[in-house]
């Protein structure tokens, strides 16, 4: 069983195992998915405009070093204007979370072997960043 991390009242939190079980999701892959269902995508998926109607989208990371899921997340948020829950699945690692958050992920399934408290601890190592992102429209140069 993984650890589910999401945002409640603007704070990142660990969802209790009980609640997490209750929220168990029936993921569909892109071929079988229908609007309104939960959609699980591989990192190399090409955008389909219909996906904006998913109840939740998960992106499955094959390895912590595979950044394709980050670009895919940005495209879902900015190109499709998908505003629902976007969840990191697969090889989610505590040290990648801060990149994922800035690319628009709103929840994570952290593998059971990882420590969720460490993950929550390093989810925001910086107060501000140089670039604008999905979650912050301001660049460093817009603030100076």
């Amino acid at each position: 069983m993984h650890h589910l991390i999401n945002k409640q009242n603007d704070e990142w939190q660990l969802v209790s195992q009980e609640d997490s079980e209750q929220q168990k999701i029936e993921w569909q892959d892109a071929e079988s998915w229908q609007p309104g269902q939960a959609l699980r995508l591989p990192v190399d998926a090409e955008l389909d405009p219909q996906w904006g109607q998913a109840s939740v989208i998960g992106i499955d990371f094959p390895a912590l070093t595979d950044g394709r899921g980050l670009s895919l997340a940005v495209l879902l948020r900015t190109r499709l204007n998908y505003s629902g829950d976007l969840r990191g699945l697969g090889a989610v690692h505590e040290d990648i979370l801060h990149f994922m958050v800035r690319c628009g992920f709103s929840s994570f399934e952290l593998p059971e072997s990882r420590d969720p408290n460490v993950a929550l601890n390093c989810i925001a190592p910086h107060k501000q960043y140089y670039q604008s992102s999905v979650v912050d429209p301001l660049n460093h140069f817009d603030r100076v």
Binding site: G67, L70, S71, I96, F99, C103, H126, Y129, Y130, H140
Partner: peptide, 13 residues
């Protein structure tokens, strides 16, 4: 330099 530092999308090329 500023733009590429900790770029959220391009740290795992």
């Amino acid at each position: 330099r500023q733009w590429s530092t900790n770029h959220p999308e391009f740290e795992w090329l």
